[in-house]
């Protein structure tokens, strides 16, 4: 096991859960939504050799925020939330995680694809190639999110949208460069 692959990520989430249990008891439950590399690793949308050092947290219960940094979890990705599809939260799914007080979620596969198409770094292109290979994407669902003006188009400036849409078309054709 390494700290940077699936078992290491789950161990960190478990320690976060134990901290929350110690601080807040059993009287309430908390939520955390993770994205990025750690989401791909946990949901096996990427080969087992994929790793991540930190865990990107898109959203978390306020009580958890003070604890996140201890486990190399950060919410810096939330600054890009304004670009994300509007209804990502309705499509998010739970990650199998036996937490005492924390429920862990991630985005739908299609929303994860969109975040990667938006970011478009070298690592994102690599991840998208792997996601294509796992055949886990519902392209009809992806198209419906992108076609819905209120989901994504409305969040982006014209230039951002044009760049995103070109990448989406290339992705749909399996022609990532």
């Amino acid at each position: 096991m390494t700290d940077f692959q699936k078992d290491g990520i789950l161990q960190r989430l478990m320690q976060l859960d134990d901290d929350a249990l110690a601080l807040f008891g059993l009287s309430q439950r908390f939520e955390i939504t993770i994205v990025g590399g750690s989401a791909l690793i946990i949901t096996r949308l990427t080969p087992d050799t994929r790793f991540t050092t930190d865990i990107d947290v898109l959203k978390a219960s306020q009580e958890l925020e003070q604890l996140l940094e201890r486990y190399d979890m950060n919410m810096s990705v939330s600054t890009f939330l304004y670009q994300y599809p509007h209804n990502w939260e309705k499509r998010r799914r739970p990650i199998p995680f036996d937490g005492q007080v924390i429920d862990v979620y991630t985005l739908s596969n299609e929303d994860l694809v969109i975040t990667k198409l938006l970011a478009w770094r070298r690592v994102d292109k690599h991840d998208l190639t792997n996601m294509l290979a796992t055949d886990c994407i519902d392209f009809d669902k992806l198209k419906s999110i992108i076609d819905d003006v209120t989901e994504l188009r409305i969040n982006l400036e014209d230039e951002e949208w044009n760049a995103f849409f070109s990448r989406y078309l290339a992705f749909e054709q399996g022609e990532l460069t």
């Binding site: 320690q15 134990d18 901290d19 110690a22 601080l23 050092t53 930190d54 201890r70 486990y71 190399d72």
Partner: peptide
């Protein structure tokens, strides 16, 4: 940041133990 978290791991563990002890 990941290095800093790893470097501070002894303090993090100590704080976590303290939380568990108090509870």
């Amino acid at each position: 940041n990941s290095y800093r978290v790893a470097y501070q791991r002894p303090e993090t563990v100590r704080e976590s133990k303290k939380m568990r002890w108090e509870r």
